[in-house]
Amino acid sequence: MSLDDLTNDVQDSYGQLDDELTVSLDREARNELALLEAALEPEDTDELVRRAIHMLFQTTVDTGKLDFQLRSAYDVTYDEYLSGMTFEEMTGADQYPSMDDERRYQF
Rank of each mutant, 00 (worst) to 15 (best):
S24H: 12
E88Y: 13
Q58W: 03
R50Q: 11
A38E: 15
A52D: 03
D101G: 03
L21F: 05
F57T: 02
S2Q: 09
V10P: 01
D79A: 09
R30F: 12
E43S: 10
M90K: 12
L40H: 09
N8K: 14
A93H: 09
Q58D: 12
T22V: 14
T77S: 12
A29K: 13
L25A: 08
D44P: 01
V49N: 04
R103A: 14
T60S: 12
T77H: 02
E37N: 14
A93P: 11
L6E: 00
D4F: 04
D18L: 14
Q16N: 10
E43K: 07
A34C: 00
S83H: 01
Q11F: 13
Q11P: 05
E102T: 10
R50W: 07
E88R: 14
G64M: 04
S24V: 07
L48S: 03
A39P: 04
D9F: 08
A52R: 01
D100A: 07
R51C: 10
P42K: 03
L40V: 11
D4E: 15
D101N: 14
P97V: 03
E41D: 09
V49A: 05
M90D: 12
S2H: 10
L36Y: 12
E102M: 08
A52N: 00
L35C: 03
Q95S: 11
A52E: 01
M55Y: 12
Q16G: 06
D5L: 08
A39L: 09
E88L: 08
S83V: 01
R27N: 13
